[in-house]
Nucleic acid binder design. Structure first.
Lengths: 194, 194
DNA sequence: GTGTATCGGATACAGTCGTACCACAACAGC
DNA sequence: GCTGTTGTGGTACGACTGTATCCGATACAC
């Protein structure tokens, strides 16, 4: 045993076990023992690589965030239609659980959501006082030729908050993906009407 | 001791203790013992009136929902400006933490939010497959003279999801109440422009 | 006046949790 | 070949949890 091991790699593997448990059974079911079992390692190993449970939760969330940002950037870079409208649409659909990966991500975020407010360290990863997505969307909208009277900042604020919520609504079964996409395209049409 | 007591009344008092703990320290801190201490009664009493913790959580959430609906209806009935636009504005501001009571309500809902998905009984109180608020808002919008091309259902879907989210954003300090109200009035102006 | 259903306090029990501790195997550098 | 560091397992500890039990005390019905 005990040949040299990549700690970072090990931690990421264990973090995926955290994600699976959190997504399926909620953050309350994420105990050190459960994580160890899900990852197929001993309790001691989870302790060894994360020291404390708090660290386990914070790092697991951070890894998820990193992956999400990379995914979003890749998807925007990969799309052929580089019009402002196309990029805006991609940006907003990134908030919706339209494939397995985004659904997992959304479920984990939902699981973390409440705990975020009793735990400042989690809040730091989860919520920023800054509004980077809204800012990005605002600057995109400024770049387009929009109807008179349209205020990009106000549109961005509602769109980001709204489609974040509608993504969760899909998870809850209150709406279906086609319904939310219809709502998205309706509002894009409203904004980008010439 | 032990003179006849109104059980319903007693339960509502204890439920407010649940709200306070959930709002301030999260649902994880809501233990039978903590609730008893916060309510100023013995552990046995909490057991006596709620039987089980699950019952305590479900009933406490139900009471909060009841109070929220009554508050919303009262506020709509009480307002002098009964124009469609005025009612719509009141309906949406009801989702924002603009006073102590609505802030408490929002904080408790946030605390319950995650647990909702691992617990079907909580989900039944918390989330409905139906969309009553969206339906109400849609029918209100249909009643008004809106610009051509505006689809009340699509507008309602985004507005409800959006301002629910922006209400939470206020709690998180990402936006201030004046900012969100400005966003609200902007979108009302956009919808109700003659 | 007395019995009895209702109300309520104290405490015990079994389980789970995060963490700490101890022992040892495998490799690194000397 | 030896020594010290690194990786891994097993397990024990103390705290906390929800629930159950035992028992005292009150207030109303008769």
């Amino acid at each position: 045993m005990a040949r040299r091991v990549d700690h970072e790699q090990r931690r990421r593997e264990i973090a995926t076990a955290v994600w699976r448990i959190a997504a399926e059974r909620g953050l309350d079911s994420v105990s050190m023992r459960e994580v160890a079992a899900e990852a197929g390692v001993s309790l001691r190993l989870v302790q060894y690589y994360f020291e404390t449970k708090h660290n386990l939760l914070v790092l697991s969330l951070r890894y998820l965030h990193e992956r999400g940002e990379q995914r979003a950037q890749a998807r925007i870079a990969a799309q052929v239609d580089q019009s402002v409208r196309g990029v805006v649409r991609t940006l907003l659909t990134e908030l919706l659980p339209l494939d397995a990966e985004r659904e997992l991500s959304l479920r984990v975020h939902r699981a973390y959501f409440s705990r975020t407010h009793s735990d400042p360290a989690l809040a730091k990863v989860f919520l920023h006082t800054e509004t980077p997505i809204e800012d990005l969307l605002t600057s995109l909208l400024r770049r387009a030729a929009l109807p008179p009277g349209v205020q990009p900042r106000q549109e961005a604020n509602l769109l980001v908050a709204g489609f974040t919520g509608l993504g969760l609504d899909i998870l809850h079964g209150r709406f279906t993906p086609p319904e939310v996409l219809a709502t998205l395209d309706y509002h894009l049409a409203r904004l980008f009407q010439a």
